[in-house]
Lab assay of single mutants.
Amino acid sequence: IINNLKLIREKKKISQSELAALLEVSRQTINGIEKNKYNPSLQLALKIAYYLNTPLEDIFQW
């Protein structure tokens, strides 16, 4: 999986903590996703895309 979450999140000036709060997950979860240590569920990936107002395929590429 190619993961552009960190790049997109930083472009939008959103911290890991802010995104985690919006998604109701821990900051460690966001960190793990960004470091490719954790693959989000489809539901979480869709929520990330929604809150970042970015197409899912721009954030994650399988």
Rank of each mutant, 00 (worst) to 15 (best):
I1W: 14
L56P: 05
N53K: 11
F60L: 03
Y38S: 07
E34S: 00
E24L: 10
S15R: 07
G32I: 11
L5Q: 02
A49Y: 01
I2G: 10
G32K: 14
L46W: 07
Y51D: 01
L7T: 14
I2A: 10
Q43A: 15
W62M: 13
Q28S: 13
N3Y: 01
N4P: 01
S26G: 08
S26D: 13
A21I: 12
Y38N: 07
I30P: 01
Q61M: 09
L7G: 13
P40S: 03
L7W: 09
E34V: 03
L46A: 07
E24H: 15
Y38F: 13
A21M: 14
L46P: 00
K6T: 08
W62C: 13
R9L: 05
Y50S: 07
K6Y: 05
K6R: 14
L46M: 15
L23C: 15
L23R: 00
Y50V: 07
K11T: 11
S17M: 12
F60C: 04
E24W: 07
Y51I: 15
I48S: 01
N31C: 08
R9E: 02
Q61N: 12
Q43H: 13
K13C: 12
E24F: 10
L52R: 00
I2S: 12
K12M: 11
A21G: 12
E34T: 02
F60V: 00
S17I: 11
P55I: 04
L46H: 09
K47T: 05
E57F: 07
I48F: 04
S15L: 06
Y51L: 11
K35W: 08
A20I: 03
N53D: 14
E18C: 08
T54D: 02
I14W: 05
K35F: 06
R27E: 15
L44R: 03
N36C: 10
I33L: 08
S41E: 06
E10D: 09
I1H: 12
I14N: 01
K13D: 09
A20Q: 03
Q16Y: 04
L19K: 01
N39S: 15
N4D: 04
N39R: 15
L22N: 08
L23N: 02
K11D: 09
E10Q: 07
L44T: 05
I1S: 13
A20K: 02
L5C: 04
K11M: 13
L44S: 02
N31R: 13
A49P: 01
Q16N: 03
N31I: 14
K12Q: 14
L22M: 14
L42R: 08
L52H: 00
S17N: 12
Y51S: 06
R27W: 15
G32Q: 15
L52T: 04
Q28F: 08
N39M: 14
Y51M: 10
S17G: 13
I59A: 01
L22S: 09
N53S: 12
N53I: 05
W62G: 11
K11C: 09
E18L: 07
K6M: 09
K13H: 12
